[in-house]
Nucleic acid binder design. Structure first.
Length: 424
RNA sequence: GGAGAGUUGGCAGAGCGGUAAUGCAGCGGAUUGCUAAUCCGUCAACCUUUAAUUUGGUUGCACAAGUUCAAAUCUUGUACUCUCCGCCA
């Protein structure tokens, strides 16, 4: 979240950011509350100062054995007055707290202004669009022929949108996860975490999923817990409330988790197979960095995610998201999209975002500034490195052979103990 | 599920109705003939004021209600942590 002080002092810039983000949030209410709050505060503080003074003289009188009846009578009325003004103050502060959690992050100055996803900018393409001497099958028929997943039976367990991997499909899914975790920890120096898959309200609020996106999440009301939509939630909260010595920055974590998303409102879109699902697997990269370094760190984060697709030899492109397509908490974001030969389009497998201090303020994550000795909010970033379902789609479709087998890229051989997936 | 203990600054830790001790670490300064010591100050948030890292003030003892002239301290509720018992992969 933004600080109220920041909104007050940079109203023009915040408003411009909101417009660019296509946000309907109204900050004039917030500013009005801010004025009310400061008026109340002034009044309360004067009264409290008086209270403290009289209170001291009562204490001294009593110590000296004198009579404090007059002061006590005065204090009674002051105390009552304080109570009513405090009640007003509390009301205003509640209104502020309610509103400010719905104000999205500001947009970084380097982000192109645009209305929606059609105005995102392709900044890079890597590899070639694969060509086939035969009619390539889509991932669904490949999966069926090779018995890699079973969408009919998964319905018996959890319903549509919950993928069930079978046989070599299950093994391939596991291989992808292991490959990515090993890759990031050994080559990019991330520390591996294996987090809880449920999180409470507070953790969800800290990363920005709550309160705005409640209906997108699976909930367990009995225990006030939510199924995490991404490992970003537990991993960012790893350092919640902590002050990290500046010398220890950046902190880098890689974590596998299952991810749960209700995808409310998206029914009918991309419902085929693995392309849009309620539960999927993902390796997430999270960084805690010095504010001066966060945009440099965003570039390396993107490179780390790209390296996975490169190692697997998959054609992809990078989008720089325009302001209108930026998510609630992000100040800047790149999307990685991998090529699906059968869909004949690019599929998003990763978003790499800089949240600046938006999440850090909510989560109270700071670093100790070495030169001033003061604690300051740090910047958080995260990116998928990467999500498996669409990666699987691209992988199967890209590496399919004329005889119906899948020739696996060498990077996966040690994880599969196999070079080729063939008809059982 | 049952019983008990606890939650105070970056950390450790006292206070148990009358201005939140003290130690360590950090930062700033002073001093001393050097891997360091000693002394002083500072050490959260907010409001106000300022050229300012200045001034004045308020708050802050897990959170919330209450009692009181006055609450870290008393009462009640809630959350979380730990210990023991029970159940269990």
């Amino acid at each position: 979240m933004l600080s109220l002080k920041y909104i007050r002092e940079n109203t023009g810039y915040v408003q411009e950011s909101l417009t660019h983000k296509q946000s309907q949030v109204n900050i004039s209410n917030l500013l009005e509350f801010d004025i009310q709050r400061r008026n109340c505060l002034k009044e309360v503080e004067v009264l409290r100062a008086e209270k403290n003074q009289v209170s001291n003289s009562i204490a001294e009188l009593k110590k000296a054995g004198g009579n404090a009846e007059k002061d006590i009578a005065e204090m009674r009325s002051v105390s009552n007055r304080i109570k009513t003004v405090e009640a007003d103050l509390r009301k205003v502060e509640e209104s502020i707290a309610n509103d400010i959690y719905y104000v999205p992050n500001i947009v970084h100055s380097s982000v192109p202004v645009g209305k929606n996803e059609t105005e995102n900018i392709v900044i890079k393409k890597w590899g070639d669009v694969p060509e086939f001497s035969f009619d390539p099958k889509d991932h669904l028929s490949l999966g069926e022929d090779l018995q890699l997943f079973d969408f009919k039976r998964s319905v018996k367990m959890a319903g549509a949108g919950f993928p069930l991997y079978t046989g070599l499909g299950a093994k391939l899914e596991r291989a992808l996860i292991n490959f990515m975790l090993d890759f990031h920890t050994s080559k990019h120096n991330y520390t591996e975490l294996f987090p809880p898959f449920l999180a409470h309200t507070n953790a969800m609020q800290n990363t920005g999923q709550l309160p705005k996106f409640k209906e997108d999440m699976y909930q367990i009301p009995e225990d006030a817990l939510y199924c995490i939509p991404t490992a970003e939630v537990p991993v960012t909260n790893f350092h919640q409330g902590e002050i990290i010595p500046e010398a220890e920055l950046p902190k880098k974590y890689a974590a596998y988790s299952a991810c749960f998303r209700r995808e409310a409102g998206s029914y009918g879109k991309d419902t085929r197979g693995l392309i849009r699902v309620h539960q999927f697997n993902k390796v997430e990269l999270v960084k805690f960095v010095h504010p001066d370094e966060s945009y440099k760190e965003l570039e390396t984060l993107l490179e780390n995610a790209e390296a996975i697709l490169q190692a697997l030899g998959l054609h992809y492109r990078i989008l720089e998201l325009c302001s209108g397509d930026l998510s609630f908490s992000a100040a800047k974001c790149y999307d990685l999209e991998v090529w699906s030969p059968a869909e004949n389009k690019y599929l998003e497998v990763s978003s790499c975002s800089n949240f600046e201090n938006f999440q850090a303020r909510r989560s109270n994550i700071r670093y100790r500034n070495k030169s001033t000795g003061k604690s300051e909010l740090l910047h958080t970033l995260n990116g998928s490195g990467v999500a498996t379902p669409r990666l699987m789609v691209a992988l199967l479709e890209t590496y399919q052979q004329k005889d119906g087998t899948i020739k696996l890229p060498t990077a996966l051989h040690p994880f599969m103990n196999l070079e080729k997936i063939s008809i059982p």
